[in-house]
Nucleic acid binder design. Sequence first.
DNA 1: CTCAATTTGTTCGTATGTATG
DNA 2: ACATACATACGAACAAATTGA
Lengths: 255, 255
Amino acid sequence: MNKLTSIYDRSRVPLYIQVASVMRQRIDTGHWLEGDKISTLEELEKEFAVARVTIRQAIELLREEGLLNAQQGRGTFVSGKPKHNRWLNLANDFDVMVSSIKDNVLKRVHIEETASSPELSEGEGQLAEDGYVFLRSVQYNSGEPFSVVNLHLARSIFDKGGKQFMHAAALPKIVEMADVTISHAHQTLTIGVASPETADLLKIGLGEPTADCRLVLVDDKDVAIYVADIHYHKNCFALRTDLLERSGPRRGAGK
Amino acid sequence: MNKLTSIYDRSRVPLYIQVASVMRQRIDTGHWLEGDKISTLEELEKEFAVARVTIRQAIELLREEGLLNAQQGRGTFVSGKPKHNRWLNLANDFDVMVSSIKDNVLKRVHIEETASSPELSEGEGQLAEDGYVFLRSVQYNSGEPFSVVNLHLARSIFDKGGKQFMHAAALPKIVEMADVTISHAHQTLTIGVASPETADLLKIGLGEPTADCRLVLVDDKDVAIYVADIHYHKNCFALRTDLLERSGPRRGAGK
DNA sequence: CTCAATTTGTTCGTATGTATG
DNA sequence: ACATACATACGAACAAATTGA
């Protein structure tokens, strides 16, 4: 009967969690402001077309997160905003990217010297003949993990760098190599889901969304020397650009 | 006891759906190839540390999606790949963006002539003095909705465009206006969750992830004349760039 | 052809979580 | 707070189909 019913059905997440996520979003976007009294249970029941207990479960969830504060007889109030760490500014310029990751705190969690080759799609260059080394690392910001990097590095590059790759970001090292020319840096950004490994390292739930960034460096012989699959925690991730930065102000066409 | 147990606990999504999403990913990434026989129920039980019935529920889910095909006595086989509509190539260049949306099929679903002003963050310009008009539209590709655009358009611009804005994308119209200068086009990309309205229009579940793109056009007087919050269906979304496109090949520093 | 091993399919009982009114 | 209904998850046992020795 209700329009919402069909929406609820499309998600298999428990109803009270769906309701909670809508409420959380309202607080986050400022639709409900801090200190405000939110609608009464009765109003919320009607709006979401669910039972009272379900609303209460949702409120309880947000209370545990410190976002809501219910007071018997008075009402329910907004007591805080969800925390975001949108400090990560993904680069859309190669030099900015290289310099920004140079000082990253990272922890190598896995190295496979004889790894299988990465899957390359159309336009991402050719596979290196001498195979790849696989490196996995986690990047931290103030103690919290915010990204997992799965890197296939061409063996030739790995050997050239020696032990440098063990404890620092690979990209700046490669850029500094005198006899390596990078002709393309293909970046693809999508939304993915956390695998068991990623979920474990990022401390998130299995199958939760992540911002996935694939970065493939291709040398002057069209060989993919660096193939990284990076999974970012969704709350840390933001990509900011001024689309007119390079071309300058746009005066009306006035034709 | 198990390492996975704690990961399961972090997500409130039913266990069999979590397991299914891991399996779906394995098929998608080619870890499990089409035609292959996947591990037996017994092996999967152990790997995921769940009951047999739970594995079967996950398999049933993927069977309905056409990804798996279980045969009694033989095993379970991969019968297809998840479909992606990653055809959407979000622009990182203003001209490309304008030209790419010019021919979009869209449906205006909501217009508010006297709307509240949008929330602007630091650096996104000043609010227009004459207020805003709010427009909501849905964009379709071969009948399927792939994005919802919530647009606050400065009233001055809206009045200038007349009825043009009713049935076509606003951006190209604005660019063509002779007396309008766009000095900045701030784009911010994040991962968000679907509100009831967005979920309804995109035909996804409440609280499911979306790719959120905010585009703010600022004129030469630092006024935000166009403030769009765009929610993309996560499966349609991809942002591809060559980070070296503008600066050209990078020869080793060789200092 | 039969037998045994393998593998998926089904069912039962129990416990807990979700949602309604 | 209560009674009710249904979904989720477990473990274990048993049934049915396939395969190869």
